[in-house]
Design a protein around this nucleic acid. Structure first.
Length: 448
DNA sequence: AAAAAAC
């Protein structure tokens, strides 16, 4: 099978690029005749989030794509943009939106929407995500983009049916055309035949590297993928591009056409990185208290390694008079939804959480990320670079300036910060833990 | 060994 590799160079604000790997597998034996990048028989309107006037293009040239990318597009047999692309692509490719996670999400949401036969009331497009929160966020994007299409959607996450009052899951999933969910629930629904699979046309695995390399999530994702009909298109999205991911992805979807699109999806360059040298584990809590007492901080996320740490520091910070909320997988689904909704609305400013929110979550106003615990692998000795990048990527979204502060408290955490600095070739600047005027001056310069 | 993910 023909393998095309398209690499765009960066043409954007900061010039930094990260790999966004998209593997597209099409098991149809006959080569489809493309007239447009995404096939669509249904007319779809796309609206801009800010209700800005929408540009429309009639030629791919007008999109200011990298010449090499454009060359690939033509070589594959695409000629002119379809109706949906004419309106959607300028929006998707526009700066600074191309920097946000929404750009990536929009790309596969658009693909899913364009694959659906809207006359057929059955599941046709399925997207898996590593967390409940990310699934819900993607569904918001789906409903925005599909606002003017008759698409029927359903969330396949725990207890989702509790909110769709009056309808059973059987009823809901019988007619749903586009489904976004987490692997456990999706697998359960497929196994129990609550969700039909024979009309499935596109299967999207978001945060594929994370999904595939994790025991549990990986098993479930593979089982689900194997349940899809042979004609179903498989699309893997991954923000990292390690050889491990590549080989796993190859086993997951052999015979795949592979596209490597370099985008500035995740970038350490727009995010200022600092570290604070704490004396001990206990001292970290005091520094955190001081930080929120003595500085004025907008919305922020505090990442910890364990659920119990999240609970512990949430309790301690509350006792010290700070208003914080806390989110991890140990909470009930209702609690998780309430906490997340509150944080998105801005009614809560400080969110303490685990790696459940390290990936993909977009909250515009977040301008500070604190790594209360430095991300490490399960040995507790080695840095977890991917998680670090994803975590600090929760700030500085949409081209805004973001700040991240790493708490260091012993030799191991110090070593890991040094390793991270070396790995990303970006300086992580030390700020004092006892001179808050200085800290404020340093941070103010960045957050202003 | 962490966290996530089903009933």
């Amino acid at each position: 099978m023909d393998i095309s590799e398209i690499t765009t160079s960066s043409s954007t604000i900061n010039g930094d690029v990260e790999n966004l790997t998209t593997r597209i597998e099409n098991l149809n034996t006959e080569e489809p005749k493309h007239s447009s990048l995404l096939e669509s028989s249904y007319e779809v309107k796309v609206t801009s989030v800010d209700d800005e006037p929408l540009l429309s293009v009639t030629k791919f040239e007008e999109l200011n794509l990298n010449p090499n990318l454009l060359k690939g597009v033509y070589e594959m047999g695409f000629t002119t943009p379809s109706k949906i692309q004419a309106k959607a692509l300028p929006l998707l490719l526009k700066s600074p939106y191309s920097q946000s996670g929404t750009g990536k999400t929009a790309a596969f949401v658009l693909t899913m929407l364009s694959r659906i036969n809207y006359d057929l009331k059955a599941p046709q497009a399925l997207c898996l995500t590593p967390s409940r929160e990310l699934a819900r966020q993607i569904m918001v994007e789906v409903r925005k983009m599909g606002k003017y299409t008759p698409v029927i959607t359903a969330e396949a996450i725990r207890d989702s049916h509790a909110k769709t009052s009056g309808r059973s899951r059987h009823e809901e999933f019988a007619e749903a055309q586009l489904i976004v969910g987490t692997p456990g629930t999706v697998y359960d629904l497929l196994k129990r035949k609550v969700m039909e699979k024979k009309h499935m046309k596109i299967f999207v695995l978001d945060e594929a590297d994370n999904m595939l390399d994790q025991q549990g999530l990986g098993d479930q994702s593979i089982r689900i993928k194997n349940m899809m009909p042979p004609s179903c298109q498989i699309v893997l999205f991954s923000a990292t591009y390690s050889s491990e991911v590549r080989s796993f992805a190859t086993r997951f979807a052999p015979n795949a056409n592979q596209f490597n699109l370099k985008v500035e999806e995740l970038s350490v360059k727009t995010i200022k990185q600092f570290y604070m040298d704490c004396k001990s584990e206990e001292h970290k809590l005091e520094v955190l208290d001081d930080l929120y007492t003595l500085l004025t901080i907008g919305q922020s996320i505090i990442f910890v390694q364990k659920r119990e740490t999240a609970d512990k520091i949430a309790k301690r910070m509350t006792e010290k008079g700070h208003k914080v909320i806390n989110l991890h997988g140990g909470l009930s689904t209702t609690e998780r939804d309430e906490v997340m909704d509150g944080f998105r609305k801005g009614s809560a400013k400080v969110l303490i959480t685990t790696n459940v929110l390290s990936r993909g979550i977009d909250v515009l106003q977040v301008n500070l990320v604190i790594n209360y615990d430095i991300p490490m692998d399960i040995t507790g000795r080695n840095p977890d670079f991917e998680t670090y990048l994803h975590r600090i990527g929760r700030t500085g979204r949409f081209g805004r300036t973001g700040v991240s502060i790493n708490f260091v408290h012993d030799a191991v955490s110090w070593e890991i910060v040094q390793a991270i600095q070396k790995h990303f070739q970006r300086e992580i600047v030390k700020v004092p833990t006892d001179d808050w005027d200085t800290v404020e001056k340093i941070l103010r310069k960045e957050v202003s």
